[in-house]
Write a protein that binds this DNA or RNA. Structure first.
Lengths: 203, 203
DNA sequence: TCAGTATGTGTACATTGTTCACTTTTTTCT
DNA sequence: AGAAAAAAGTGAACAATGTACACATACTGA
């Protein structure tokens, strides 16, 4: 870390700071991320961060936004892949959601730190809505329409279930004795159990 | 705050510190809770806390444990009340779970801060298991048996769903335009949608 | 009563977020 | 091209925080 750079200016500090948060969060947890630590990691003075983010919270907001979009990308990919293989999209998306959380616990936590980010930031809100849309996209007849705030009971149920699973595995120490693989098997079983409730036609 | 006490010794500082955390967390959020702030709130020196908790994390662990047990108490009460009124226990417990989170967001968050508490603490683990048992108790044929680590797919599904709902409402800014009451209505609708998946006999 | 233990105090220190005046580079305008 | 202005990074500060440690005070049991 802290390779010395040739020029006085860094060139892309805003983005690099997000990378630094990523690196440190993955390694030591999101709570261990400090502004000074990120700066040192990049070989840059502590105060330089303030040229790009008004404060720590703003940096964390940008990071949360990036993480949300990354998760959305992952879900989108899982959906596409399931479609092309003729697999169930709901199952694929649900599994991918929990799998992402298990693979990147610190990033998953970073997305939802109400008290540590500006949750009214437009970019953050947009990313959160995109994620919601990604969950909904697995449902037949789902329309990515004008009022994305409206979410059906079934859509919310699926989201809640996988979001709850992810949180219980990542933050609650549920099934601490199970391996990652066994946990995913359990997730699959739970989604299978849930499935009937997602198919009833009377909406 | 900081009423001066007559005696040099406080008498019940360990417990009072938890109360202070509670007060400050409810008012300013769990992230705003500081050791020094709690001490000042009690009119006590900052270092006194260390006689009762090895560090901030230990204090937070004790607080999370207390909050978990408080939530369990609430669920237990909801269950009993539903039984005596002939209402559905699963619905009552699920609603009470989310309701508690909405009423005490900072406490609910405090229970699940993996990076800020000692999640292997025996008391904490016990409280978490008790909560799991409380969720399971609504199911017919649930036995509070020897191996509480084993949780059925249906039990985990219910827990995940309400836990996910609680988190999405508390930390995600889901349905930000809805009132507390409307949110609870939505929760009721989601649990109703979920219900069929919890009743199938083939386990 | 008195020694020992438990509990609270005060001072001190390293780390953190943040501010501000300053320097260095890049861009823009004529 | 050269000057003026804007953008980006620096270093020294400051207050607040968690924590350690030597000390003071109160309680308890022989």
């Amino acid at each position: 870390m802290a390779k010395k750079r040739a020029s006085y200016h860094h060139g892309n500090l805003a983005e690099s700071l997000l990378d630094a948060v990523n690196t440190i969060a993955e390694q030591f947890g999101i709570e261990a991320v400090t502004l000074r630590g990120c700066a040192k990691h990049l070989g840059v003075s502590p105060s330089s961060a303030f040229r790009h983010y008004s404060d720590k919270r703003a940096l964390f907001t940008a990071f949360a936004t990036r993480a949300l979009n990354q998760l959305s990308d992952t879900l989108q990919q899982a959906h596409t892949e399931a479609d092309s293989r003729g697999n169930d999209a709901l199952m694929a998306v649900g599994l991918a959601y929990v799998q992402y959380a298990l693979a990147h616990p610190a990033l998953f936590r970073a997305m939802w730190r109400e008290e540590a980010i500006y949750t009214q930031d437009p970019d953050y809100l947009e990313a959160a809505l995109r994620l919601q849309g990604q969950i909904s996209s697995g449902f037949a007849g789902s329309i990515d329409d004008g009022d994305p705030e409206a979410i059906s009971d079934q859509e919310l149920l699926l989201w809640s279930a996988v979001h709850g699973l992810a949180n219980l595995y990542v933050d609650g120490n549920l099934n601490g004795h199970l391996s990652q693989f066994e946990r995913l098997k359990k997730v699959e079983a739970v989604i299978t159990t849930l499935k009937p409730a997602l198919l009833s036609s009377d909406q």
